[in-house]
Design a protein around this nucleic acid. Sequence first.
DNA 1: AGCGGTTTCATAACAGCGTCACGGCTGGTA
DNA 2: TACCAGCCGTGACGCTGTTATGAAACCGCT
Lengths: 199, 199
Amino acid sequence: MPRPRTHDEALRGRLLDRAGELLSQEGAGALSLRRLATDAATSTTAVYSLFGGKPGLVRELYVEAFHRLGTRLRAVAATGDPAEDLVRLGVAYRASALADPHLYAVMFGGAIPGFDPDDAAVEHSRAALAPLLGVIETGVREGVFTDTDGTMAVGCWGIVHGLVSLELLGNLPPGLDVAAAYERALRANTAGWTRPTGT
Amino acid sequence: MPRPRTHDEALRGRLLDRAGELLSQEGAGALSLRRLATDAATSTTAVYSLFGGKPGLVRELYVEAFHRLGTRLRAVAATGDPAEDLVRLGVAYRASALADPHLYAVMFGGAIPGFDPDDAAVEHSRAALAPLLGVIETGVREGVFTDTDGTMAVGCWGIVHGLVSLELLGNLPPGLDVAAAYERALRANTAGWTRPTGT
DNA sequence: AGCGGTTTCATAACAGCGTCACGGCTGGTA
DNA sequence: TACCAGCCGTGACGCTGTTATGAAACCGCT
């Protein structure tokens, strides 16, 4: 009979914790299997037993990262105004990215060369954005937003991700008040999807 | 007297051409100095003489990439309607990125680990976006756009870059008509910056 | 209790990477 | 013509992810 898989859960946790620390504190370049194994008092082979290799390990960090992002987005309280909620979601998204830029780079920046998320992992990324879809659906139902086919969610995700990416990569003009510009850009984009009312 | 620098311009051109080919055809992972040197019938040391190292070589590709992007954007003819021009610029931007995704990854994706563009290189990126600034300025002067402090350009660049990034990384939902959704999202965002007129 | 099959993980090696010290060759300068 | 700064080929160093090998630990079974 094949012995059931009895991986060392403590070792697994240690590796994942330390990998997250290395990534967050020193960036993707510092996340090498040898250093990770040394820091976790094991050898590089353990990573292959537990995760199948470096990409498998990074996949866990990737999924965890979207889990955290989803938690932060779900924590945004509804104000009753879908347009306002949308902007607040965007602000929370940016805060999450700025809180751990290297982790954000793993999610969207292709920071680790050998790693490409599979479809199942990408599914986690979409699940994290459920609050965005919820707010838009509410707004459409209330007649505030004009979206008909889900394109609005794509557009909102696009501008949020794009601005955060540009900021993290240092491509925004120096001296710009990023927080203010970010919020204004989000409000403008939201306005473009908002049904004109007699305000 | 020190002899003036008499770099082998032919060798320099061969290296840059082949580096661009390797990057475009097989991605950032295929761009190794050893392979590049072999393909160009030289040795890796030549890259250090001519470019100072791999980051220096990639810097040339980076600048060239923005030069091409700028050329494509400048080729977009003005229609007289700034809002329409803005969308067309966005479409040209996407076409440029899709034409060479790996090159786009060098520009914005951090595809090559050791490479971070210096300020002068980043300046080239902003220069390539001059047509965007021009269209917005025209729109503001004509009273079509409501931007006052340049935030609109940041927002437009953000949504364009964000959507293109998500598309290239495979994060958009499968089955989506990307071209149509992209253009609709751009029109909505533009509408959010457009002064309401009695249409 | 003790055995056998199976998995985990340490050791050590391999190929590939960017980088650089060394040194021969080249070609403009004096 | 003699010189010598600069280019670039050779070879090495330390790093990376990966893997073949083998010992030890563990499970279910008799």
